[in-house]
């Protein structure tokens, strides 16, 4: 217990140290003329530029635009992925029927659908949400499916011995038993939804972090571009951490987690 705490503390300290090290190296490498700031800017310039963009409100605008699409795509992917995953996990026929789509999704890069969505939905938010939805859907669906499908047979049998009907077994054995795996799927989905939104914004948008990155990228304004890249990274880490936290809360009953 104490050793574990120490280990976690140590991991946190080491992680922080290595981050600081890289930022320092970045700053020094540019200051000493080792790297041309044109390609990568410097941490101090990025910090100053961040404050400027923060004050003129463009950070808020871009973050809001990105989060808006993120929330919609993740929400849709969660609802569709969990519902389809539950159906496919419970009814083998549904799983077989959905199988080809899943293989298709695994083997074809999702961005390849971008032009198609543009043709259907035009440039802008609907297309961004659709792309990010597809990014996030697979892990949520796949994890829900495997959670329900791998319901403990002994538990199901014990439930049956007390007169549980299939619906009881689904609601009281299969579903609660799958929550941790579903949460893990959602955590993966969060990362992918954010990636999906930013990638789609790179191609066509009028606001958002991805839009800001391409916009300044095309103008070769590296510092301004780096601001949005850093925000994307921080957002990604933050959102994933929140989900990791929720995940450990939901599977505290797992034996290997507490011993």
């Amino acid at each position: 217990m104490i050793a574990e705490l120490f280990y976690r503390r140590q991991a946190l300290v080491l992680g922080t140290l290595s981050m600081i090290g890289i930022v320092a190296f970045w700053q020094i490498a540019v200051d000493t003329g080792f790297i041309n700031p044109f390609f990568i800017s410097t941490p101090s310039q990025v910090a100053v530029e961040f404050m400027a963009q923060f004050e003129d409100g463009s950070v808020a605008t871009n973050v809001a635009a990105t989060l808006y699409c993120f929330a919609w795509s993740l929400g849709l992917a969660a609802v569709v992925g969990i519902v389809l995953g539950m159906l496919a996990g419970w009814f083998a026929d549904v799983e077989s029927a959905l199988e080809p789509f899943i293989w298709f999704k695994y083997s074809a890069p999702t961005v390849a659908f971008y032009p198609l969505f543009v043709a259907w939905l035009g440039y802008g938010r609907p297309t961004i949400i659709a792309i990010a939805f597809l990014f996030a859907l697979t892990p949520i669906y796949a994890n829900t499916l495997s959670g329900i499908k791998n319901t403990d047979r002994d538990l199901a049998r014990a439930a049956r011995s007390f007169g549980a009907k299939p619906l009881d077994i689904f609601l009281r054995v299969a579903l609660p038993g799958s929550v941790p795996v579903m949460m893990a799927g959602l955590r993966l989905g969060v990362g992918r939804a954010l990636t999906g939104v930013v990638v789609a914004e790179l191609f066509g948008a009028n606001a958002g972090l991805g839009y800001a990155i391409t916009y300044y990228g095309q103008l070769m304004q590296t510092t301004k571009m780096m601001v949005s890249i850093v925000i994307v990274v921080v957002l990604g880490v933050l959102l994933t951490q929140i989900l990791s936290f929720l995940e450990t809360r939901t599977d505290s009953w797992r034996v290997d987690n507490n011993r």
Partner: peptide, 24 residues
């Protein structure tokens, strides 16, 4: 039935598990 493997719902407390049959 009392099974060999504990066959308790791991996410339920002792009380929750004992209530299971009654709920069913």
């Amino acid at each position: 039935v009392v099974f060999q493997e504990a066959s308790l719902l791991p996410w339920r407390s002792v009380r929750g598990n004992v209530k299971f049959g009654l709920e069913m």
